[in-house]
Structures are given as C-alpha cells and as structure tokens.
C-alpha cells in the first residue's frame, strides 16, 4: 500500500452527516443566519486571544442579567447581558430602533492549557479591545476600533493586504487585514507587528 493509499484509508473514516439545504429560499434563510453567526463570531474573536492571562472562575452564572458597555460600529452601546448557563451569554441591544441579539462566550487558557469560561465583563472588555472590519453595501471597508471609524477601502496593496497602526489611550496595536477572494476580510491584530513594522501606516481617522 502506498502512503497515499494509507492516508486515504485513514481519512475515509470521516463523513459529513449534515443535511445541506439546497432549496433557494432555504439557502437564503441560512445565509442570513450564518451572517449573524459570523458577526457574532467576529465580535468574539479577541475575547479569548487576550484571555491568556485570565483567571479561573465559576462557569455557570445561572441566568444573572447585567448591563455592560460595548463599542459596536464605532458607537458606545449599552447591552443587556444574560448568562445562558452553559458558559455563554446573550447580548441584547438597540440599534436603529430595533432590538438585536447576539450570543457567544469565550474561554481563557492558562499556561497549562486549561480552559475556563470568561465572565461577561471580561468578554466585553476583550471584545472592545479588538477592532472589527466590515464592508458595507457600497463596497466601503471600515475598521471600527472603539470610537474610531477608519475607511481602509483604498489602503489595500496589490496583494490585497492593508496594514495600519491603531492607537487608543496611548496603546498601540498593529492591524493586518486581508481582502480575500471570497469577499471576506480576515484580520489579525497584535501588539507586535506580524510583518515588517515599516509596512504599517498610521490609521487615517475619519
């Protein structure tokens, strides 16, 4: 048996059991749901990356509600937070007269690799600490970072990469956004630049 045959035999154990919806209407519905989920996931990206220095806490807050402040799309927004009981939280807030909800959670990882659920305020703090990148319906790509709204549409190089230096209360971080072929904008934000420091330009604040 060749290596390829051995590998294929090993991975032939994997099968997708999901029922992929193929009806147009259903696909559109799922797409909407996925967009919401993706936004939530994006909002929670940092919650855990920074959580490396977090401390262990009891995971289940048993449905306790609290109010927290989150920076959403450049605006400081008051959100109602409800613990879902399994380490996650539901965040409700009002935007343009509509009540919106998002859910999620995060874990902190200690030096030994142990994971513990984050408190809602830790989650919110870390969510605030990281930028968000969105493309609007007109194709304008914005970076939202605390109260800053930065138009980066024309800051991508020929390889589709935009590098900017963010600053908030004297703390600097390096943001690298990649324009992906599939229309998404994956990004990384670090205190130490991922690429040559000289490639990062100061963020042009609107």
């Amino acid at each position: 048996m060749t290596d390829k045959e051995l590998y294929k035999q090993a991975f032939s154990a994997l099968h997708s059991s999901a029922q992929i919806s193929l009806e147009a209407e259903e696909m559109a519905k799922i797409q909407k749901k996925h967009k919401t989920n993706m936004a939530v996931a994006a909002a929670l990206i940092c919650a855990v990356i920074i959580g490396g220095s977090g401390t262990a806490y009891a995971a289940d807050l048993g449905g306790i509600q609290q109010k927290l402040s989150l920076w959403l799309h450049g605006k400081e927004t008051e959100v109602d937070v409800t613990a879902t009981g399994n380490g996650g939280y539901t965040f409700s807030y009002e935007e343009n007269g509509q009540i919106k909800e998002m859910g999620g959670g995060g874990v902190s990882i200690d030096e030994s690799g142990n994971e513990t659920w984050l408190y809602a305020d830790e989650l919110a703090e870390d969510m605030n600490r990281y930028a968000d990148v969105y493309e609007d319906e007109n194709g304008i790509v914005h970076v939202y970072y605390y109260d800053q709204i930065i138009d980066i549409t024309n800051l991508f190089d020929q390889e589709g990469i935009c590098r900017i230096l963010l600053s908030h209360n004297g703390e600097k971080s390096y943001l690298k956004v990649t324009r992906d072929e599939d229309g998404s904008y994956p990004f990384s934000q670090r205190k130490v630049p991922e690429d040559d420091k000289e490639l990062y330009r100061d963020a042009p604040v609107e």
Binding site: A42, L44, I45, I49, S184, P186
Partner: peptide
C-alpha cells in the same frame, strides 16, 4: 479552508 481557519481563530467554544 479559510472559513475553517476563521473558526479556529475565534476560539468560540460550544459544548
């Protein structure tokens, strides 16, 4: 693969 990488980077865990 890109989507899967994004999932990895979120660190968002369900049960």
């Amino acid at each position: 693969i890109n989507r899967a990488k994004n999932v990895n980077h979120t660190f968002w865990r369900r049960n």
